[in-house]
């Protein structure tokens, strides 16, 4: 009897969840207010804007400047993030520690630091920094650098501790110290993965940088916000296309780099 239940426990769980979903439908107020009546027109305007982006000189110039600003924030933020991630990630991987006790202590502490950095979303960091520094580019740069440093550092740490053990053991047998192992073993072995992940994160940083400027920091997000307030959807779409363009360019660039690393 028990083995049979054990075998079907996934199906039982799926069935239960489905029942919960069905019963939740009973609590919905199926009135006319469920869907916003004027929403259809707005949606239609947005779709129309998608095909008729505003391509006037002023807007294009504005979009270009805003894209540049967004890119600069992302690049500066990522640069700092890589530095944080490299330092904390290496320490959090434990590859530099000597004994097993020291290793687990070091790992726990720096994994905690990295966890703290990425537990708070970049938008929240942006608000905090705007409150502290005012509307300066530093706020945007640090708001990206800290959570991205936390994410990258965590992944770097995992990648460093997951390298194949044989080359490391061979280097140890040749008398390499911990720091020498890092330079001649761990880093070259993990470099391709680390670069590839950093490029992916850079793409995310551009999106974040755009979104963050909603707080008023300038950049594509800020322009999108302004145009949305004026209900100028064709302008919104111009800026969105610039954002998409940026992301595509970074993606192409990272593909080129990845190919070169694998070869």
């Amino acid at each position: 009897m028990w083995p049979l239940i054990d075998f079907h426990k996934k199906n039982v769980l799926t069935g239960l969840m489905f029942l919960v979903f069905l019963s939740s439908l009973l609590y919905i107020d199926w009135g006319p207010e469920l869907i916003h009546a004027g929403g259809g027109t707005s949606l239609w305007q947005m779709v129309k804007g998608m095909f008729t982006p505003d391509l006037s000189g002023d807007i294009l110039l504005l979009a270009l400047v805003a894209s540049w600003q967004t890119l600069v924030y992302a690049v500066a933020g990522m640069t700092l993030a890589i530095i944080f991630a490299f330092g904390f990630g290496t320490l959090a991987s434990g590859v530099l520690a000597q004994g097993s006790l020291g290793r687990s202590g070091l790992k726990t502490f720096f994994r905690g630091v990295l966890g703290f950095m990425r537990a708070i979303h970049e938008l929240v960091w942006a608000w905090l920094f705007v409150a502290a520094f005012g509307l300066t580019p530093f706020a945007a740069v640090f708001a990206i650098a800290i959570p991205y440093g936390g994410i990258l550092g965590r992944i770097f740490a995992d990648m460093l501790s997951d390298v194949p053990p044989q080359p490391i053991r061979a280097l140890q047998a040749a008398g390499a110290s911990r720091l020498q192992l890092l330079i001649y073993g761990y880093l070259p072995l993990a470099a391709a993965d680390m670069t590839s992940y950093t490029m992916y994160r850079f793409e995310c940083a551009i999106r974040s940088s755009a979104i963050m400027s909603f707080v008023g920091l300038g950049g594509l997000g800020y322009q999108i916000d302004l145009s949305l307030h004026d209900l100028k959807y064709s302008e919104v779409w111009t800026f969105l296309y610039f954002l998409i363009g940026l992301v595509i360019v970074v993606d192409l660039w990272s593909q080129v780099i990845r190919k070169r690393l694998v070869a």
Partner: peptide
């Protein structure tokens, strides 16, 4: 599998000197 494949040959050879460097 004992060598670091992503490094140039010379680094893998000179790793034999790390004990003195």
């Amino acid at each position: 599998f004992d060598l670091v494949g992503s490094l140039p040959v010379i680094h893998n050879v000179l790793a034999g000197r790390l004990k003195d460097w």
